[in-house]
Design a protein around this nucleic acid. Structure first.
Lengths: 352, 352
DNA sequence: GGGTCAATTGTTAACGTTCACAATGCCTTT
DNA sequence: AAAGGCATTGTGAACGTTAACAATTGACCC
């Protein structure tokens, strides 16, 4: 009596049908060159016939590679992280990797460690960390099995390879745009103070103002949410001589515009407002929002590219055991350039 | 000369240090009851001391469970899917599962099959499929190793367990709200025709109109994007006697409002507009958008709950081999209720 | 005081791959 | 014609865990 009624076929089953050894089946599956064409075809036919699929777990056990990449992201509900994640997943899958994700709800050290721990348990081959704080480096040191890591929007100073949008440049683009329109200065609603992206955008904004000899107002800090933008907008509405505001993301810009609107200030007639991110909605805001487009997809693709390179390198190292311990590669820092998208929310200041 | 300089410790190493057999270590790790307290403590100390971590791959090989759940979603860039995914990931992780995702860019049969194939290769223990078309059922039939599946926003008619928001109810809520305000009828900008969500919202809208004896205009079809809403809005601006529009999501509603605005029609004074989803931005639109809130997080949690139940059931089945082949459970269909959020984009029709 | 039972621990054999090495056959070279 | 080399295939042993079963101990019962 067949006792393997419901067992799915394994390599040995294929081997038996094809009249070869299991090792030959393995060779066919792994595209080993030295298999006779006829043999290969017989094996493939057997595979097809049995509906065989290779057991990736067994494979991972012996190769010590799970073919899985881990992604740690913060709040994938937001458009930016979501888009980046999407591109990462696509690129990884195309390269034959599985993608395991952890979405953080808070940016605490504990949550981050726990996330890394989780992924380490799964024995991921590599990590992409989309976490906008420098605390990552510390947490990564805890990783029991050091795996290749690529950070996105991370701190370039901590020695990990990083893929970044040039946020500083973005802040500068916005500020130049507004100054060129004739504004005397530009106010700024920033993201949270401890986000690297916030800091870089502030820097670009401040440097541009200073270079132009324009006064530098105190920046205000939101939390990326429309609501926080709204609150800042209410305060801004009371600022005398306000003519231009650079808001660090589109969602907050929406809140700012709303607050100004309620205070009977027109955008852009009375006040110009510029956002950041170019979310799909921003073109249809009232008025359509001038903003900075970031190529999130490109960032995701680059991150995977970098990570796969690192994996290949590691693999090669493992084989050539005697190679120098570390090739002392220069710190990798891929920068993606943002660009300004001018719409109707920005214009020249009202002539007085 | 230790040759295991850089090898991470395995169970046998722990066993040696603790002076027990590897099997006892395994028992400790799996909370097996019959281990003497003192022995357990010695083993735990050894684990701690060596920094041992269990190799989940080897474990998966023998238990035939990867502790990984697969999620197939369509366009996780959108707020709804992203939020659902977020909740799923959280719930799964809390239950000790890993989450592997595949984001579809198109809803073709091929892409779906490929996604399922990908996850099957990874030997996921279960699947959550967030795909809003009935084509899933067909593709799922191709799954080589049938695994428990829960669908989200899927077709309740195909026999798979499903977690849904009551979209029909949502459509009805909106339509009732507008009729009650005094509108003679309500126009509708729908999502794509082949989406189940679109269909259900249309149904709720149509039924409510019919029940009230109101005329039922021909619905218009967008693709969820603000741009498509804008195009529909341009057409709507030419409709005589237009006083109320129900738009099937907030993004398209934004486009509709924009188009009406450009046509010099005021919202809500001239036309009331109601959206769907309650994205965080909608409260800050101009004007703040009346919409329908869906509890995406709840949907995600329920989906995982259902899936874990199915996994437990399957596990039990496997143990009690002689149990009846299928308990013939009634089709599971969890329904989450949406609710109306009234803001300023809807109001009574202009008195004529 | 022997026997039964439960608690605790150990031994051996899977799980399904890939790796290392051996074996075979055939062709080329000298 | 022997030797060497290459292409092709097979054999046995890992990989690190859990499952099944056996062995040992001590308590308890009649």
């Amino acid at each position: 009596m067949a006792r393997n009624v419901h067992r799915s076929p394994v390599m040995a089953d294929v081997a038996k049908v094809a009249g070869v050894s299991h090792q030959t089946v393995s060779r066919v599956l792994n595209d080993h060159p030295n298999v006779r064409r006829e043999t290969r075809e017989r094996v493939l036919a057997a595979i097809e016939g049995l509906g065989y699929r290779r057991n990736s777990t067994a494979r991972a056990l012996v190769t010590r590679r799970t073919n899985t990449l881990g992604v740690v992201a913060f709040d994938t509900t937001l458009y930016g992280p979501a888009s980046t994640l999407y591109a990462i997943e696509r690129a990884a899958r195309e390269a034959g990797y599985f993608v395991s994700i952890v979405s953080l709800r808070e940016l605490t050290r504990d949550d981050l460690s726990e996330a890394l721990d989780h992924l380490a348990r799964q024995q991921v081959d590599g990590l992409v960390v989309i976490v906008p704080q420098s605390a990552i480096a510390v947490a990564l040191a805890d990783m029991p099995q050091p795996v290749p890591v690529v950070t996105v929007e991370g701190d370039a100073g901590v020695g990990l390879p990083v893929v970044n949008v040039d946020q500083r440049k973005g802040g500068a683009l916005v500020t130049e745009h507004l100054l060129r329109l004739g504004h005397r200065t530009v106010w700024h609603v920033s993201g949270p103070q401890d986000w690297l992206e916030s800091q870089a955008r502030i820097q670009g904004w401040r440097e541009t103002l200073e270079a132009a000899g324009a006064p530098v107002p105190e920046p205000m800090y939101g939390d990326w949410s429309p609501r926080s933008g709204y609150r800042c907008g209410q305060i801004l509405a009371g600022v005398p001589d306000l003519t231009a505001v650079f808001v660090a993301n589109d969602q907050m810009a929406l809140g700012v515009v709303r607050a100004l609107h309620e205070a009977r200030m027109r955008v852009p007639d009375d006040v110009s407002v510029v956002g950041f991110d170019d979310v799909p909605e921003s073109e249809f805001f009232t008025p359509p929002l001038t903003t900075v487009a970031q190529d999130f997809a490109e960032v995701g693709r680059k991150a995977i590219e970098l990570l796969l390179d690192a994996l290949d390198g590691e693999h090669a190292d493992g084989a050539a055991n005697g190679s120098p311990p570390r090739p002392a590669t220069p710190p990798v820092n891929i920068v993606v350039r943002p660009h300004l998208v001018v719409r109707r929310s920005s214009g020249p200041p009202r002539s007085r």
